[in-house]
Structures are given as structure tokens and as C-alpha cells.
């Protein structure tokens, strides 16, 4: 073939153009290395197989990860595991230099990346945090409704049903909580339509809030008043507030009112939760209590009004520092 005759010509030729071979193999673009251990990765629905009481290193809260920390006796391991997320395989604990191969061998039967059925306290914290996020959205929505700004309240009425409800639905069923999606949607529809009838809006708002509070109240009293439990929820709320606040600010201005307001609601509810356990903490950990109260007061000043100020009171970095400070103190107190 004439065609082949010119193969040699091509090979010898050298030009400025970039030429791409016709096969489809491409170099991998991720820097992740293969795990050092033979993989037994599941072949289907990796994220949904139930696997006893293993710890999901992608999702576990710190108090759960502490079990690994205790087993290996490595200080601050829980935080290190959290900071190196996400994990595609459990073996990445080694390849990401979180622990050594020898340490991994000791805990490999305790860890998973599969979506496990949460149990015990971890499950309750997860449940409470989701409902807490709903509460934060609803609190800021109420403020905006009261200011006569239904168009600004609408996204915050929407977020609980759009972002959170599906995530907590299974748990609501399991805990025999009456479904309340329809209440949330009814309120959203009314607010979308302009919330013209103030009485009806107030009525439906109340129904939604009562449903959320009702869902929270199925947690045992001892749990809801346990400072250790509540502090974990507070940290979850503040962490989300931190991300939302970062997503609100650009160019030294509050560019996105929605994310400013989201973060405001989460911090307000975190503060409410803290009030409920403040006495306990003050008694047992007076030094931490002092720092938390002062830092929380500083933090609340970042959101002076439901409508964002022209110029942000603090930068996202400054807010991040305050939130970190509270997290550090809550660890001392738990």
C-alpha cells in the first residue's frame, strides 16, 4: 500500500505540531496511587452495602474515629483521618500517609468506605445535625418574612426540603416521625406566591417548625441535654456555616445574600443550642466555657442583620479562625 510507504516518512518527520496517536489510552490524570494491598473492591453499589458496625472513614464523626485513635494510640489521628478525606479505598489510609502499613493491619477490619448503617450516638448526631440545619434555614426565613421580604425568604424555606429532607427521610420513617415534606412544600408554595396572606403564612410556618421540632423531640431527653452530644451538633452547624460564608463573599463584598443568610441561620441555631448546655459546661469546664461564649459573641457580630451589610464585618478567613477556636474548645470539653 502506498499508504504504508509513508509511515516511515511520518516517523522520521518532526514538526512543531502536536500529534496524537490514534489509540484511546490516555495517561491517568489523578495522582492517587494504587493501594499496596490486594484490592477486594466491590463490583456493585459500593456505597450501599450494609457491613456491620465498621467505621466509614469518609463519613464518621470525630467521636467514632476516636475508636481508631484509641486502638492505635496515635494522638489527633481522628482529625488527621478527617483532613485526608476522601478515600476511594480503605488502603488509602496508608497511601495518603495517614497511618503506616503496620498500623493499618491492626485496624483494617474496623474500617470501610461503604455507606454503613449508622448506629448509636453517631446516628443520632447525624439526625440532629440535619434537623438543626433545617432549623437554621427556617430561622433566617422567618426573619426575612417578618421584614416583608418573601422573595428573599423563599430559598431558605426551600433548602430544608430541597437539600436536606431526602437525606433524613429514612431516619424519620425509622423513628416513626410523621412525614412532613408536604408541610414544607406548602409553605414554600405560599412564599413563592408572595406570602400575601400574613396569617396563613404564619400558620403554615408554625406547622413546619412544629414538625421539625417534633422530629427533634424523638431523640431521648438525656441525649439532647448531653453536652458532648450537643457540641458535636454545634460543630457540624458551624462547619457548614463556614463553607456557606466563604461562598457568599467575593471581592470584599457580600455577593450572594442567600449564602450569607444560610450561614447566619446556622450560627444563630448553634448559639441557641449552646445556651441549652452552657450551665453544664460552665460548671465542668469553666475556662472553655469562657472562650466559647466570647468567641460565639464575636462570631454572631459577623451577621448584624438578615439583609447583608455592604461590607462584610469579617473575611471568610477570620470567620474560619473563630469557628476553629470554638471547635478546639469543644474538644477540651468533651
Amino acid at each position: 500500500m502506498k499508504f504504508l510507504k509513508f509511515l516511515g516518512l511520518w516517523v522520521a518527520s518532526c514538526g512543531l505540531a502536536i500529534l496524537v496517536a490514534c489509540n484511546n489510552q490516555a495517561p491517568s490524570t489523578s495522582t492517587t496511587q494504587s493501594p499496596p494491598v490486594a484490592s477486594s473492591a466491590p463490583t456493585e453499589q459500593a456505597a450501599h452495602a450494609g457491613h456491620g458496625k465498621k467505621i466509614n472513614i469518609n463519613a464518621a464523626i470525630l467521636s467514632e474515629l476516636d475508636k481508631l485513635e484509641a486502638k492505635l494510640g496515635v494522638p489527633a489521628l481522628s482529625n488527621k483521618i478527617q483532613a485526608s478525606r476522601p478515600y476511594g479505598k480503605v488502603e488509602e489510609l496508608v497511601s495518603k500517609d495517614v497511618i503506616t502499613q503496620a498500623q493499618f493491619d491492626q485496624i483494617k477490619d474496623m474500617v470501610t468506605i461503604e455507606d454503613i448503617q449508622l448506629t448509636g450516638e453517631a446516628k443520632d448526631v447525624d439526625y440532629m445535625l440535619k434537623l438543626g440545619l433545617m432549623k437554621g434555614h427556617m430561622m433566617v426565613a422567618k426573619e426575612l418574612l417578618d421584614l416583608g421580604k418573601p422573595e428573599q425568604a423563599e430559598p431558605h424555606i426551600g433548602h430544608p426540603v430541597e437539600e436536606i429532607y431526602a437525606d433524613v427521610e429514612d431516619q424519620l420513617n425509622e423513628r416513626n416521625v410523621k412525614a412532613f415534606k408536604n408541610e414544607l412544600i406548602a409553605l414554600q408554595d405560599r412564599v413563592k406566591a408572595g406570602a400575601k396572606d400574613a396569617n396563613k403564612t404564619a400558620e403554615e410556618y408554625k406547622a413546619s417548625i412544629q414538625s421539625i421540632d417534633g422530629a427533634i423531640s424523638v431523640l431521648p431527653d438525656t441525649q439532647r441535654k448531653d453536652h458532648d452530644f450537643v457540641l458535636q451538633v454545634i460543630n457540624g452547624l458551624l462547619d457548614t456555616a463556614n463553607s456557606e460564608y466563604t461562598a457568599a463573599i467575593a471581592d470584599g463584598k457580600v455577593k450572594e445574600a442567600i449564602e450569607y443568610q444560610d450561614s447566619r441561620g446556622f450560627v444563630m441555631y448553634a448559639n441557641d443550642l449552646y445556651k441549652g448546655i452552657a450551665d453544664q459546661i460552665e460548671k465542668e469546664y469553666p475556662a472553655s466555657h469562657k472562650v466559647i461564649v466570647a468567641t460565639m459573641a464575636d462570631l454572631l457580630k459577623v451577621w448584624p442583620t438578615p439583609i447583608p451589610p455592604q461590607k462584610p464585618v469579617k473575611t471568610p478567613e477570620e470567620v474560619g479562625t473563630l469557628i476553629k477556636q470554638i471547635e478546639t474548645e469543644t474538644k477540651k470539653a468533651s
Partner: peptide
């Protein structure tokens, strides 16, 4: 893909989901 991998379920801030 299977229903469980349809990606309509929200993944909360700070969480990981593995679609396969």
C-alpha cells in the same frame, strides 16, 4: 445506572459519596 447511583440524593457539606 442503578437507581441507587442516580445522584438525586443530596450529599451534605463535608460528606463523601462514591458513585459506581
Amino acid at each position: 445506572h442503578p437507581a441507587a447511583m442516580d445522584g438525586v440524593k443530596p450529599v451534605r457539606n463535608g460528606n463523601v459519596f462514591i458513585y459506581e
